[in-house]
Structure formats: C-alpha cells, structure tokens
Simulated scan of single mutants.
Amino acid sequence: MSYKSILIDQITACYNDKSWFVPIDEILIDVTAKEAAFESERKQTIWSIVNHLIYWNEKWLERFISEKIELDNVVNNDDTFYLDPNCINEHEWKETLIRLKNIFSSWIEALEQCEESKLVKVIPTYYGAAWWGVVSNLCIHNAYHIGQIMLLKKQIREK
C-alpha cells in the first residue's frame, strides 16, 4: 500500500465513503440552509464549519500543487468560520455544498496525478514535515469537524 492510496482513502472516507464514520456528504445531503445557519449555544453553525473546511482544504491544495508554503501571511483562524448573514438562503447553501464537493474531488485528482516521491518530500518551510503527513493531518482535521457537524445536526433535529 502506498502513501497515495492511503491518502486517497482518507479523503474519500471524509467526503463520501461510509466506513468508520458517516461522511460529510451523507450528513449534509438533507440539511437545509436554515438548519445549516442555526447557531448552537457555542455560536457554531454547520455552515460556518463547512466554510472553515473549504478554506483549509483549498489553502492546502493550493500549497500542494504550487509547493509554496508561506506562513508569514497567517490568517486569523476564526475568520475562516465566517458566515455572511446576508447570504443565508438555499441557493447559497447549495453553492457552498458544490464548493465542498469540488475541493474534495480536486484533492483526489491531485493525489491520483502526483508521484509517490512528492508525498515523501519534506517541506523545509513547514516544520520539516513530509507532504504525506501534512495531507494526513488535514484529513484528521476534516474528520474532527465532520464529527462536530454531525453533533450539530443531531442537536438541531432534536429541537
């Protein structure tokens, strides 16, 4: 088994392959814009967490493809959870779900097309980590937030 096949398996498990946990695609399939924008007691929303996942998956895919990692342009992580209150409607929610699907598809495509040697390549500007480790940790990050989304959905549906 190669790093590439493991990482593709992890990305797929997060998006649409039900294995150890329910993937995000299945969780969100029947969530409405109103539900996605519902604020929990902790001021979290499904939609804002999805925006956060899109942001970090796009950012790391861009870095993976370009092989440029600049950490001096550090973003405030709280800003990646932003949800524009003026754009809460079914059309915008569907557009968000399309972006989510596209970023996961783009990750799978990028991994399928890359050489195994890229995945073992060390990133000197990112703590000396290898690409396989960075992508694997991104998948762990995705799984963490997918769990949050599942819990929020359950809380919303129980009310």
Rank of each mutant, 00 (worst) to 15 (best):
I65V: 14
S66V: 05
S66I: 06
E67T: 06
K68H: 15
K68S: 05
I69V: 13
I69A: 05
E70L: 04
E70R: 01
L71I: 10
L71T: 10
D72F: 06
D72G: 03
N73K: 05
N73C: 09
V74D: 05
V74G: 07
V75K: 03
V75D: 10
N77G: 02
D78P: 05
D79K: 11
D79R: 07
T80S: 12
F81P: 01
F81S: 02
L83Q: 05
D84C: 04
D84P: 04
P85F: 02
N86K: 02
N86H: 04
C87A: 09
C87N: 08
I88Y: 12
E90D: 10
H91V: 14
H91E: 15
E92S: 11
W93Q: 03
K94R: 14
K94G: 02
E95S: 15
T96M: 00
T96V: 10
L100E: 09
N102V: 00
I103D: 02
S105T: 04
S105V: 10
S106L: 04
S106E: 13
S106D: 10
S106F: 00
W107Q: 04
W107N: 01
E109V: 03
A110Y: 00
A110N: 02
L111H: 03
L111K: 01
E112Q: 08
Q113D: 08
E115T: 11
E116R: 02
S117L: 09
S117G: 07
K118I: 09
K118C: 09
L119S: 09
L119I: 05
V120P: 09
V120N: 15
K121V: 06
I123H: 12
P124D: 04
T125I: 03
Y126V: 02
Y126P: 01
Y127I: 00
Y127W: 02
A129S: 12
A130H: 12
A130F: 11
W131K: 01
W131A: 04
W131H: 09
W132V: 01
G133V: 11
G133W: 08
V134M: 02
V135Y: 11
S136P: 08
L138N: 10
L138M: 10
C139E: 11
C139V: 14
I140G: 15
I140V: 13
H141R: 13
N142T: 00
A143V: 06
A143C: 08
A143T: 12
Y144A: 11
Y144T: 10
I146K: 00
G147P: 15
G147A: 15
Q148Y: 12
Q148H: 15
Q148V: 03
L151S: 14
L151M: 13
L151R: 14
